[in-house]
Every structure is written in structure tokens, then in C-alpha cells.
């Protein structure tokens, strides 16, 4: 069965079936081998960032340039008609008449879904508040599959701010497709929201909650670290956890920024798998 994603928006990871997700990962693998493809020649891509971003915006814009496309847009609302009170619908409708594709980050939750409904061109959600960040999720899945050789039947330990971390929510949803087992490590105040846990329960999958990381490490295939979402949480105090030696095949995906990165000790077999938060050769796969 052939899978076509032509003219499809990407708003939430749940919009894509497991087969479609794997198809995107397969394409990404090809891109990693041959990143300089002129596929966007003559195309205009709108990069609309309504809130600050460094890594995501530059990843997208670099990928567009590498693929031969042109970028229009803005990196903040300063100097745009949004400052004059223009509605999101009007902004998107206008931009859609210039661009072939819209990449949007917006602090308002659900704004990307709404944009995709008023836009005549596809929309890629580059983060909508605390809701979804599906392209980050795609890249996390890519890293997991690349290091583990599979997405099936893995035990994944999610650590940090599980309440506000939108990439955690997306990743849990995605990994539920692949029969994952989840270890949830967070302070009590930052536990995974019940709506996301319900998603795991609905699929009869297993999850365990911890406040200490050391209990989950020994049997983890993946350790997924997140930073505290300081902009959403008034008390960023977070104790650095103690570490024990993980399973020999354990891989850590980290999204921590340098200033908030947890201390690593006694993990001789670990390999750090970078995400789009760090510039890598896989940048163009972030489509």
C-alpha cells in the first residue's frame, strides 16, 4: 500500500497512523544519507514564529534552505500587523496566499489546528503552547529507531517536567502505537497529566510512576530527559538526580539545554543522541 502525505498538515502526532509515522522516518533516513536535495526549488515556505525560538526555527529554516526553498515570515510578532490586532485567521489567510507551506509556532494552544483549517496550504505545527510539538516527536522517534533498530516493545523512561512538557505528551502518544512500556519519573507536582496517562491505559499498556530516577534506569531502553518548562512553572527548583548504571543498551535522548542539563555520572555505556535541539546532520529530516 502506498502512503501519500501530499498536502497533509502535521498538527498533532495523533493525526498520523503508525504506518505514516514509519513512512516519514523512512524518508528521513534517506535524507540523512543524502541531505542536499533540491526538492523545494521555487517554493516559498512561511516561517511564522509568534513566540521566541532558536533551535526549532533555525532547524526549519536551515532545512528549507538546504532543500532549495525560500523562507518568508517573522521570528516575533513585533513589527507585524498582529500588533495592530489582526486576527490569526486573517494572518494565516494572507500568508497562505503567498506561501506553499506554513510552519507556525504560537503560544496559543490549538492555534495550529485552527490555522490548518483556515489555510489553503498545509500547516506544520512547530509548537502550540503546552499542547503539541509533533516534528520534535518525529525526530525523537527517528533517534529512538536509529539507536534501537526498532520502535516496537521498548521500555522508555521519561524524566523531568512531564506535566508541561509538550514533547513528552506527543512522544507518549506516539510510542503507544508501538507497544511501549513507560516509566514516568518526575516530582509529584510535575506528574504526567491524567489525560495522557488515560491514553496509555486505553491501549492496555503498562506505566509506572517514580519520583526517583534510580529505580527506573536499570531496565530502560530509552531515557528521555526534559527540561523544566520554566516559562510555565513558577518554581523551577529541581534536584539533580543520582544515577545508577543503566541497561547496557540504554540510550538517552536529551532535550535539556546546557544551563539546565542534569549531571551525568557513572553511565559508561551511554550514548548521547541529539535531537533537533542540537544542530546535526539530520536537520533536513525535520519536515
Amino acid at each position: 500500500m502506498s502512503i501519500s502525505l501530499k498536502n497533509r498538515s502535521l498538527i498533532s502526532i495523533s493525526d498520523y497512523t503508525p504506518e505514516e509515522i514509519c513512512h516519514v522516518l523512512d524518508i528521513a533516513e534517506d535524507f540523512e544519507k543524502n541531505p542536499h536535495q533540491n526538492l523545494l526549488n521555487g517554493r516559498i515556505i512561511a516561517s511564522l514564529f509568534f513566540e521566541p525560538s532558536t533551535r526549532t526555527r533555525l532547524s526549519f529554516e536551515t532545512a528549507i534552505q538546504l532543500l532549495g526553498g525560500n523562507v518568508i515570515g517573522f521570528s516575533s510578532t513585533a513589527g507585524t500587523s498582529i500588533q495592530k490586532g489582526e486576527s490569526l485567521a486573517d494572518t494565516i489567510t494572507m500568508v497562505a496566499s503567498y506561501a506553499d507551506l506554513i510552519v507556525m509556532r504560537n503560544p496559543i494552544e490549538g492555534s495550529a489546528r485552527f490555522a490548518s483549517e483556515v489555510s489553503k496550504v498545509p500547516v506544520i505545527n512547530a509548537g502550540d503552547g503546552a499542547n503539541q510539538h509533533p516534528t520534535q516527536c518525529m525526530l525523537d522517534l527517528y533517534s529512538i529507531r536509529k539507536t534501537q533498530g526498532t520502535l516496537e516493545n521498548l521500555e522508555i523512561t521519561l524524566v523531568g517536567d512531564l506535566k508541561y512538557g509538550r514533547t513528552v505528551h506527543s512522544l507518549v502518544e506516539a510510542m503507544c502505537h508501538f507497544n511501549a512500556k513507560f516509566n514516568l519519573v518526575s516530582p509529584v507536582e510535575l506528574k504526567l497529566p491524567s489525560v495522557v496517562k488515560q491514553h496509555i491505559k486505553d491501549r492496555n499498556l503498562e506505566y509506572h510512576q517514580y519520583t526517583e530516577l534510580e529505580d527506573a534506569i536499570p531496565h530502560s531502553d530509552i531515557i528521555y530527559m526534559t527540561r523544566i518548562q520554566r516559562e510555565r512553572f513558577p518554581d523551577p527548583c529541581f534536584a539533580t538526580p543520582c544515577w545508577r548504571t543503566p541497561s547496557p543498551t540504554a540510550v538517552c535522548c536529551t532535550r535539556c539545554r546546557a544551563s539546565t542539563r542534569s549531571t551525568w555520572t557513572s553511565m559508561p555505556t551511554r550514548r548521547l543522541i541529539t535531537s533537533s535541539r542540537h544542530k546535526t546532520a539530520s536537520t533536513p529530516v525535520k519536515l
Partner: peptide, 28 residues
């Protein structure tokens, strides 16, 4: 946050008969 964006929900009913409305937009 935006004017003229009508709400849209999927109704979720659990085994106890409790109702939740899943927002089409923000997914809460």
C-alpha cells in the same frame, strides 16, 4: 483567545457515565 473561533468537542463517556469534552483544538 481568538474571536470567532467556535468551540468543538468530542464527547468522551467513561464506564461510570461521567462525561468529558475533548477539545478539537487544544486537546484538553
Amino acid at each position: 483567545k481568538e474571536h470567532d473561533v467556535p468551540t468543538k468537542f468530542t464527547v468522551i463517556k467513561d464506564a461510570q457515565g461521567n462525561i468529558k469534552l475533548h477539545c478539537h483544538y487544544c486537546e484538553k
